[in-house]
Amino acid sequence: MDRQSTGTNDISLDALRSGSREAFAQLVERYSPSIYRLALRITGNSQDAEDVLQETFLKAMNALSDFQGRSSVSTWLYRIAVNESLMLLRRQKRANTIPVELENDENQDGESETLEIEDWCCLPEKELLSSESRAFLDQALNQLSPRLKMVFQLRDIEGLSIQETADALELTEANVKTSLMRARLKLRELLTGYFHEKLSGRAA
């Protein structure tokens, strides 16, 4: 599977550290869409996502001179965004919000004992990517625990490596791998249930 590059190779770290506005604007341009998507995924609404987006880059701007470079700048940005998002959720203490810690959800999203077997890959693209299907994909991802959701979002949607995902979420690589597998299988299960109906509809 193709993985997009998440490197900041062509944005000079020295320029960023020395306060170059141009270099920082490049960083914002490159990472604001994925930071926004991540914040939207965690907080669940666009106003909160925008707040997180702004706070993330403000914090980064103020802290860049102290940035040690132990992880990449992008991973560091994701880590700030995750913390900002979780902090915002905790502040709001929404009654209907599932726990916002990156808890170990060993038993919450466990794979079911039996797997649904239905080959829906043959459905035409226009059906797989209809606006209704897109809405379901979104809804399915939101059903996962915060941890699985974030791991899937960073690794499979934004294309970070296992190590970068682990750094961004402050988890071990082993935890990321386990969560990733659970997330993938859980989403596959949900999508199979959804597309199963589409297939039965076609056969009818």
Partner: peptide, 28 residues
């Protein structure tokens, strides 16, 4: 195959969640 397809679908719909223009402007 369906797990692989699941991941591909999520990657394909990523494009619909671009940064809205007004959000981008307010950020700068």
């Amino acid at each position: 195959n369906t797990t692989t397809k699941t991941i591909e679908l999520y990657q394909e719909i990523k494009g619909q969640d671009q940064l809205p223009e007004d959000v981008r402007k307010r950020l700068y």
